[in-house]
Lab assay of single mutants.
Amino acid sequence: LNLKQAKEEAIKELVDAGIAEKYIKLIANAKTVEGVWTLKDEILTFTV
């Protein structure tokens, strides 16, 4: 999975969960695949 694909998957998951745009922007700015997954997990843990 490359960075672009990771971001697309994570953003789709966050949108489906009804997460606010400000958190989705954090994913869009992530620099690594690991960073994308870590941010996604943290956002889902603390906002859902």
Rank of each mutant, 00 (worst) to 15 (best):
L1K: 12
L1A: 12
L1N: 10
N2F: 11
N2A: 14
N2P: 09
L3F: 03
L3T: 02
L3C: 02
K4A: 14
K4G: 07
K4C: 05
K4E: 15
K4M: 11
Q5N: 10
Q5H: 10
Q5C: 06
A6D: 01
A6C: 05
A6I: 07
K7P: 00
E8P: 00
E8D: 10
E9K: 14
E9H: 12
E9Q: 15
A10P: 01
A10H: 00
I11V: 08
I11F: 03
K12M: 07
K12S: 06
K12T: 05
E13T: 08
E13R: 05
E13G: 04
L14H: 00
V15F: 08
D16H: 13
D16Y: 10
A17V: 05
A17Y: 09
G18H: 05
G18E: 03
I19A: 11
A20N: 11
A20E: 13
A20K: 07
A20W: 04
E21H: 09
K22F: 12
K22E: 12
K22S: 09
K22T: 09
Y23E: 03
Y23Q: 06
Y23N: 02
Y23C: 06
I24C: 04
I24K: 03
I24Q: 07
I24D: 01
K25F: 07
K25G: 08
I27R: 00
I27S: 00
I27F: 04
I27H: 00
N29P: 02
A30K: 03
K31F: 06
T32H: 04
T32I: 01
T32G: 02
T32S: 09
T32F: 02
V33A: 06
V33F: 04
V33L: 07
E34G: 06
G35K: 13
G35S: 14
G35L: 10
V36T: 03
V36H: 01
V36A: 02
V36C: 02
V36M: 03
V36R: 00
W37E: 08
W37T: 09
W37A: 10
W37R: 12
T38L: 13
T38C: 08
L39V: 07
L39N: 02
K40Q: 04
K40F: 14
K40A: 06
D41H: 13
I43Q: 01
I43R: 00
I43P: 00
I43V: 05
L44F: 07
L44T: 04
T45Q: 14
T45F: 11
T45H: 14
F46Y: 13
T47A: 15
V48Q: 14
